[in-house]
Design a protein around this nucleic acid. Structure first.
Length: 473
RNA sequence: GCCGCCUUAGCUCAGUUGGUUAGAGCGCUUGAUUGUGGAUCAAGAGGUCCCCCGUUCGAACCGGGGAGGCGGUACCA
């Protein structure tokens, strides 16, 4: 007989216990921050029509490039959402007249990307976004950035452990114009921007290669360059090396507009006490044909270790920016909008390496020793639950030893034992498993082992709840 | 997509210059208590040595092809 192999599709994580509990807590805290700024929750479906997501793929060779797509029974292509912003744009366009302006909402959800998974990089992950639509710069941008910072704090990131790097697409456009490139020329300008994005990792020399002929990396892969003239390359590098942005761009209309916006945002942030956390950084690029104004990302400043104990470059745990043209795709009219997104899965991974996640609560286990006494066991569990103590009755007909082993594997702090003897005397035996675990560390002989019953006590039946409560709280 | 590494027990991995029954640690099962987990001890179960083709008297090992995994890089809303 041919049996299917039990295996998980690659890039899709199984997650359990402590991680899920930590994630729930994080989402709750961030959501509260968003709500405190007046953002209301909105949930949209996992699927959208492919054209609404902004990918015009079908009929092309690979309808699943980048996203997961399928055809509905009416032949229309649908795709799993790859972020929460594109669905928001669709929602706003569809409900344009009914929404207040500005419209503020936040969204929590799973998103999917059909691409090669890497370390710490999955094809399914969770994001929590907040966006303000019909919200012109620069004040909406300043508000979003403050909220973004508050959200990260609430998620458990120490102020000193994170830095917000800020730049602006308008500034980039200005720079491209100044060196004589057409910002609309997605090919060439895109290559330049992508090269600048790698400044952190490759340094000025690597970026210079990518701006010029091209670059071959250590693994032997070759990346085609932007083929700029030496003078142009020099301009870009001088710009990145932190000259005065405003001065460099003053002659260029859109560039000057960008620097002015950034200055106002920084000024507001500084006045509100967020100035320390934000740094201008021209190597922040983000999505290429998406953002139209300020862009920012949150970078962790501490080292993150992977499972093998190696220090890894972690990258950003959240980002955002202004996208004035996204809704215009539907309505032909620009809707100034700005938003931010926290990558919950990545942030959890990072925090996990820094501090232990809370252990999930394991229940008290009530052993099922006499099969005709099940209602009695259920009554005990119910009484414990009534006091807020997680409790379960063992299910199945295994012997006592197996039940004890189960309780141990389960991580139960306490087991409740009520067999024939206890029942006859209207008593229960309660055993604190944690005591035995502690004692087992320094026990040598088997005799010592079996004689001792650490943490175990037989008490009157009505003392069950108080005894357990006393031990657990 | 491109480059490199890897694939032997449930897990982590040894191994053989090609030669009978392929190993360890951990885990698992059973026992040392007819009602006691976790330490300790003893016994036991568990493998198409990734797949296919070839070379050979003989292949887990050598050659070719394929698949899967890992890492880097590119792309990334």
């Amino acid at each position: 007989m041919l049996r299917p192999k039990a295996r998980k599709p690659r890039g899709f994580p199984d997650r359990s216990g402590a991680e899920l509990i930590a994630e729930r807590l994080m989402l709750e805290r961030i959501g509260k921050v968003y709500e405190s700024y007046g953002f209301a929750p909105l949930s949209t479906p996992a699927f959208e029509y492919t054209d609404a997501l902004g990918k015009f793929l079908p009929d092309v060779d690979r309808p699943n490039a980048g996203v997961f797509s399928l055809q509905d029974d009416d032949e229309q292509w649908m795709s799993l959402r790859y972020d929460l912003t594109a669905p928001l744009a669709r929602y706003v366009a569809e409900n344009m007249d009914a929404l207040p302006r500005p419209y503020r909402r936040y969204a929590v959800g799973t998103v999917w990307r059909n691409e090669k998974p890497g370390p710490g990089r999955f094809r399914e992950f969770t994001q929590i976004d907040a966006d303000a639509c019909f919200a012109p710069p620069p004040h909406a941008d300043a508000e979003i950035i403050m909220m973004f910072i508050d959200a990260l704090s609430a998620a458990g990131v120490d102020d000193k452990d994170v830095e917000i790097r800020l730049s602006s697409r308008k500034v980039m456009t200005g720079l491209l114009e100044i060196i004589g490139l057409d910002p609309e020329d997605k090919g060439r300008s895109g290559t330049v921007l992508r090269a600048m994005d790698k400044y952190d990792r490759l340094g000025p020399d690597g970026v210079a290669l990518l701006l010029g002929e091209g670059r071959k990396d250590e693994s032997g892969d070759y990346t085609e360059g932007a083929k700029l003239e030496p003078g142009q390359i020099d301009s870009v590098l001088r710009f990145m090396e932190g000259g005065d942005m405003a001065e460099a761009l003053s002659a260029n209309r859109i560039g000057a507009e960008g620097t002015e916006e950034l200055a106002q945002i920084i000024s507001t942030l500084t006045e509100l006490g967020y100035g320390e956390r934000v740094k201008l950084d021209p190597s922040v690029i983000r999505g290429l044909d998406y953002y139209t104004g300020p862009v920012f990302e949150a970078e962790l400043t501490f080292d993150v270790e992977n499972e093998k104990g190696q220090t890894v470059q972690f990258g950003s745990v959240g980002s955002g920016g202004r996208y004035d043209g996204l809704i215009a795709r539907f309505k032909g009219q620009d809707v100034p909008s700005v938003g931010c997104s926290v990558g919950v899965s990545r942030l959890l991974t990072a925090l996990k390496s820094k501090s232990a996640l809370p252990e999930p609560v394991s229940p008290v286990v009530v052993l099922a020793l006499e099969s005709d006494q099940m209602p009695r066991y259920h009554r005990m569990a119910k009484a414990l639950r009534a006091e807020g103590i997680a409790a379960e009755v063992y299910l199945g007909g295994a012997g006592m030893k197996a039940q004890m082993r189960y309780a141990d594997k389960r991580g139960a702090p306490i087991v409740v034992i009520c067999g024939e003897d206890e029942r006859a005397n209207d008593q229960v035996t309660i055993k604190d498993l944690r005591a035995g675990k502690a004692a087992s560390e320094n026990i040598e002989s088997r005799e010592e082992w079996t004689e001792e019953r650490p943490g175990q006590e037989t008490v009157a039946a009505d003392q069950l709840v108080p005894w357990v409560k006393d031990r657990l709280m």
